[in-house]
Amino acid sequence: MTASTPTASVIRPKRVLPGFGLTMGLTLTYVGIIILLPIIALVLKGAEVGPLRFLEIASAPRTLAALKLTISAAAMASVLCAVYGLLMAWVLVRYDFPGKRLLDALIDIPFALPTAVAGLTLSALFAGNGWYGAVLEPQGIKVVYTIWGVTIAMAFTSIPFVVRTVQPVLEDLDPQYEQAAATLGAFPFTAFRRIVFPAIFPAFVVGISLSFARSLGEFGAVVFIAGNLPMETEIASLLAVIRLEEYDYNGAAVIALTLLILALVLLAASNLLQARAMRYKGKRQ
């Protein structure tokens, strides 16, 4: 993404290059077997119940509560990631300080760390007898088994997105504009709001939407810390698993399908945003 050549050539429609048949064949076979076929199985199972029952399951109180919890926790997690990500990107690009490279490398840990490990660790840290819980609970802040636990697990696993999307754009942005604005007497915050923020905004939104999508789908980290209180701290993907364990295959398929559709909508929106962001970048060059 960063190693860009000065002229991104337009790809010509004529097929001079070989390998169309081969790569098309390979890609379609693989996508067909690994991705499409299992999803078809899900769609068939979900469709089995008919549209009326589908809606009935998808809008049952417990399903709605689970969806609501998942979406609101994911939204809060995205806000956390947005604030933290913006701060980190800014600090890493604009300032020099000892340990900067290490800090930069540390940001990616939540991507590399298995989610089950993250869940195990966070739940131990935030439990009433853990390092964080011992400080927070006497203040009346309970994290484990509440929506805050869900939020923190989601936020942890999607920390890097905003940092990593905003950082390169900020690097491309010459600080001389801010300096000029400062020389002209603008307050630092005004300079940020007027000059920096519009430039990084598309990337910022892409990062947030990626965090949100990831948070919606997060399972491993959340189940360790969330508890299972139906209607209160039960995330949608866990409810799908519970339905499965109750032999309610259609119910599980309907919930899974609802999540899939939600993810697809988000994916489409994020691709649209990304395309617009690219266009913006193209114009600047």
């Binding site: 088994y145 508890g227 299972n228 209180l229 701290t233 519970i242």
Partner: peptide, 10 residues
């Protein structure tokens, strides 16, 4: 009784 349960594990 259910109302007194803070968490239901699987």
């Amino acid at each position: 009784l259910f109302a007194n349960v803070p968490v239901f594990d699987t």
